[in-house]
Design a protein around this nucleic acid. Structure first.
Lengths: 332, 332
DNA sequence: CTGTTAGCGCCTTCAT
DNA sequence: ATGAAGGCGCTAACAG
């Protein structure tokens, strides 16, 4: 089933069929109706590959994410998908599991697949080979969650938010405030959040205990239990993401610690699930859906203008502290 | 950058370049090395659209899922992605948010996109227009989670598993066992699980209280609270999926009910997150990752044979009850 | 308003 | 072992 068959059945030329679909105004209403009817009867759908080959535009966006097992990125992807669909674009998501080699493979694969542009969450914009490749090929892209002066990014102020969290904990009377994070080398966000934490501690005149760094992909409840068993035990724990916060609460419970009475726990990300837990997660809420949406909007605007998104078009979206139940005042 | 440029730089014909990549044995070792070097230097990657147009094979699989916000499907997608990648296929996932209209749109979009085959989770195989369309177009497909005699499916025995859950609760001394489910019209799994529940109740000589049906996409904690406020309150709650179980536990806590002492809660799906909660979720564990993996394997085998997957190749994978902490004996 | 036609990049048969 | 050439389905000049 192709355009020729439709043309023959409708008794018109292939150009007319093509126009009927792509420029409905450029064809007589009667002809258009005829073509549409015939096409529908035959179940004709335009061949995307042929169209892409001819126009050099695929109307497909590539999306590179660490993982979909973290609801943060699933929520973001939903925003990406909806916005892309509204703009007439399809998306091809690829996950990297926080591995740099996968990042590069993903980008190469997507370039070969003729995507018109990409949204990506990379480990580290500064050192990313994948981004080099994109620039070299003049592929339009926008980074989500990442923050870097020389790339177009949509993100929140991770550093500032983290410092605020510490300040808030300090106001609640906490002084032994520890931090737990995913592998910092695999995430600039983790680094920024840690920096913010250190700033917050410094501003409060507190010394930061050793940070606990665990892999992103594993559960690590055991490591958390060992960490919490050390003395002096922290009274508050700031977790670099919500999954870690959930696991920290689990680790605490396993050792008979009550959250928040014995240990205050604060997360980062604002995944929807956090509100359905007991205790409800106290966390820094990022607009995950909107991060996806704005990333696509930025990208599509550039595509429409035939340019590459500029670094100075970067967006810093607002975050907010979500009061939950996992965080309370320090024991007297 | 295309095959012609590479050919010119290498001083060979385009046919040789093409062969060097697709049939390395069919070209002299020296020539192949030369072509590979030149291609690498120039950063050449074959144009997927042109290749697809020419070969009528895209090496892309479409994936249609209800949502990625439920970790069940995120876990499954991970299995799909890994297996597809291992077989040299890319995937294009599309979510439907449990809406039938979206299901059809997704299938049409993917057909237009020239996918070689599809993995899908549909609302109801019996009535699905999307599946009709696939059959009409002779598109190879495999259903995941769905179970139906006349379609190729990879699933677990939802009905049997649900009946087992009831039997287990009965053994624990429960008699007022209620069920809560997502919109049944939107999911054959929900229907099967409900049927299994009714069977289990019947087998135990118990009468089933009215089922609570809530939308899949919303949190519904309020509806759950109202439900639990009714008298006589159930002592055990069987939830059609893990997200509902999590929300039920939340609803119970908000009303001062302890889980499992005052209310036993059992879920269904076996999402990894369930093990990190307190109480840890008692649930029917499905091999989500493997459901994805086997679906792709079934599909790729058919593709390799140039046929469409047959209904009698359907797979029923084993499930298992995962002992958690949200389920205990009935109060004496 | 409609038709004719070249060519997007690639693979593949047919020659050599 | 390598090269020449047609055509996959479509769009966009250009012509009428």
């Amino acid at each position: 089933m192709n355009i020729q068959i439709v043309a023959r059945h409708a008794g018109v030329s292939v150009a007319t069929v093509s126009r009927a679909f792509n420029f409905p105004d450029k064809v007589a209403p009667a002809t258009r109706a005829l073509v549409e009817r015939v096409a529908a009867e035959l179940g004709y759908v335009a061949n995307a590959s042929a169209r892409t080959l001819r126009t050099q535009r695929s109307r497909v966006l590539g999306v590179v994410l660490p993982t979909l097992l973290n609801p943060t990125f699933a929520e973001c992807l939903q925003g990406i998908a909806q916005t892309a669909a509204a703009g007439g674009y399809a998306i091809v998501p690829v996950t990297t599991d926080y591995q740099l080699a996968e990042e590069e493979r993903a980008v190469n694969q997507l370039i070969a697949g003729n995507v018109d542009g990409m949204i990506l969450v990379v480990s580290n914009p500064t050192t990313s080979q994948a981004l080099k490749r994109l620039r070299a090929n003049a592929v339009p892209y926008v980074l989500a969650y990442n923050k870097h002066a020389s790339h177009p990014c949509v993100s929140v102020d991770s550093e500032g938010a983290s410092a605020e969290v510490v300040a808030r904990l300090v106001r609640l009377g906490h002084r032994r405030i520890a931090m737990v994070t995913g592998t910092m080398a695999a995430s600039d966000r983790a680094q920024q959040r840690y920096r913010g934490y250190l700033q917050g501690m410094d501003a409060a005149g507190l010394s930061a205990p050793p940070v606990l760094e665990v892999p992103f992909v594993e559960t690590a409840v055991d490591a958390l239990r060992h960490y919490l068993a050390e003395t002096p035990r922290p009274t508050a724990l700031f977790c670099s993401n919500d999954l870690l916060a959930i696991r920290s609460i689990r680790a605490a419970s396993l050792d008979g610690l009550r959250v928040p009475q014995d240990l205050a726990v604060v997360g980062f990300d604002g995944i929807a699930l956090g509100q359905d837990l007991t205790p409800a997660l106290s966390t820094v809420m990022q607009p995950n859906h909107d991060i996806g949406r704005h990333s696509v909007e930025l990208l599509l605007k550039a595509l429409a203008d035939g340019v590459v998104p500029r670094a100075d078009a970067s967006l810093l979206l607002p975050h907010a502290f979500r009061e939950g139940e996992s965080c309370a005042a320090a024991p007297a």
